[in-house]
Amino acid sequence: MPNSGTAPHPSLPLTPEARAWLDTALTEIATAPTTIRTLFPAVRRHCGRAPLPDGRTVDEAVRALLLAALPLRDQALTDEVGALHRYGDPAEQRAVLRALPRLDPEGTGRFLDLVRQTLRGNDNTLIEAALGPYAAAHLPADEYRQAVLKCVFCEIPLARVAGLDDRADAELARMLGDFASERTAAGRPVPEDIAPFLHPFTTSGTTTSGTTIHGTE
């Protein structure tokens, strides 16, 4: 979605220099989208990384604005965002992952591969960023369950996984139950936050409430 021309970032705590840099960057990207390749990695150095009240950091919020300024659609957008992720450092990759819902407002799931790549990795900060509303809306049920179980293993609090209340099902309850048995047999503690998802689905045929979920079973 191209920038409308009015300042879209009045609430961000930016210095005048940072604000000027951002305004220039947004204009450059809107007119010459490939400039995002050098602007995107430079955000922290120009705008900082202070935490925001909404849980994001300044650099992440600014990177979301840069992505939103890309005047690209369909495959061109997928390719440019994919390359930013491919060559991104973890801070850049987190920003891309958290911006996916806005980059795919039609809900095509075109960026799902970025989520999958991340879930194969071992950086908890990236795994958390990947398991936001985009993953909740688009990951097939079997992959979503595996992702939840991976969070339990990596000790990522389940409260940070989007969509769990809607997508938890009997099979996930079975997997978490088996996990708990294994831990108990080994004399190791069982994370408390799995408890709500262990037993509510005792019969088959439980469905999720989301409408855009594409199960593969």
């Binding site: 990384r49 950091t57 973890p90 987190r94 908890n124 900060t125 958390e128 990596c154 609090p157």
Partner: peptide, 15 residues
Amino acid sequence: DDTSSFEGNSIRRGG
């Protein structure tokens, strides 16, 4: 680092 939780780290814990 940034948003990661040290307590819950899988490397430190044994991966």
